[in-house]
Design a protein around this nucleic acid. Structure first.
Length: 255
DNA sequence: AAACATTGCAACCGCTCTAAT
DNA sequence: CATTAGAGCGGTTGCAATGTT
């Protein structure tokens, strides 16, 4: 017995969102809060799949999102977290307030990967590339990393990789396996907080520039039952402000 | 100026996880 | 315990913007 599709494929619009659709979605969520996403499109008068609405909201419309490129510090944090967590983008994103997993994933694939490769670091294993290359005697040994210039820390200190592990990226092993293997230590504050599934908060040691801002109630991935701020938004007339950005989206649609 | 190549990002797809029954 | 439905995640794709020839 197959699973029901998340939405009726018939009559469901796909592709880029229009300003009008954004407006409807924002308006609905500001007014009603977040109930079940499956019901959102119907209630909001959208011809979209609930999943699509959730994605649009979490990746683009959420008012607490930061826009623009990742800062150097954020990038560094992403690299560090990736070396520990692998492609667990949502876990990584949880450590960067105002950033989405999609955004970080895109930034990783388009910028950081290249940067690391250029630096002679394998973006998958975080191992120096020359280790693999040097096996081929004909190739020149890559001079290693300007990594220090960027503050990149080899993960060898954190992870004692066997040659087998070296051939399989972290994401190929289950987290529990890795923990059992001692790859991640429970004494590592980052890892232990991740294991315990607490609401992510920036550790002071990250020296993240925006840590001065209070994001303590923003890091939650769902704000069900925690949407008082929406009412505040409305009371303060911030809805207008939000829609201002929608207008920008609308105008960009016309371009 | 035009054609082509590359890049970057928003959005989709399909799978897994989890909670409810 | 098994089944089901919904939510979330990570990989991938499509396309507009930008750069290069």
């Amino acid at each position: 017995m197959g699973r029901q599709p998340c939405c009726d494929k018939l009559g469901v619009k796909k592709g880029p969102w229009t300003g009008e659709e954004d407006k409807k979605l924002i308006n609905f969520i500001l007014t009603n809060g977040q109930c079940c996403w499956r019901a959102v499109p119907k209630l909001a008068g959208l011809l979209r799949c609930g999943k699509s609405c959730r994605l649009r909201w979490t990746n683009y419309l959420r008012p607490d999102l930061k826009r623009g490129l990742l800062t150097e510090d954020e990038e560094q944090l992403v690299i560090d977290l990736h070396s520990r967590l692998g492609n667990r983008w949502s876990k990584i994103a949880a450590r960067l307030p105002g950033r989405t997993d999609n955004e970080i994933k895109n930034h990783w694939n388009t910028h950081i990967k290249k940067k690391l490769t250029k630096m002679g670091i394998d973006p998958v294993t975080h191992e120096p590339l020359h280790k693999q290359v040097s096996q081929d005697s004909s190739s020149t040994v890559t001079v290693l990393p300007e990594s220090d210039q960027l503050g990149y820390q080899s993960v060898e200190t954190d992870r004692q990789l066997t040659s087998e592990e070296n051939s399989s990226p972290p994401e190929n092993s289950s987290s529990d396996e890795l923990r059992v293997q001692g790859v991640y230590s429970d004494e590592d504050p980052l890892m232990s907080s991740l294991w315990s599934d607490e609401i992510p908060l920036l550790d002071a040691s990250w020296k993240f520039p925006s840590a001065e801002n209070d994001y303590s109630n923003v890091g939650v991935t769902t704000w069900e039952g925690n949407c008082e701020w929406l009412l505040d938004y409305q009371a303060l007339g911030i809805e207008e402000l939000v829609f201002g950005s929608v207008n920008i989206a609308e105008s960009s649609d016309k371009l």
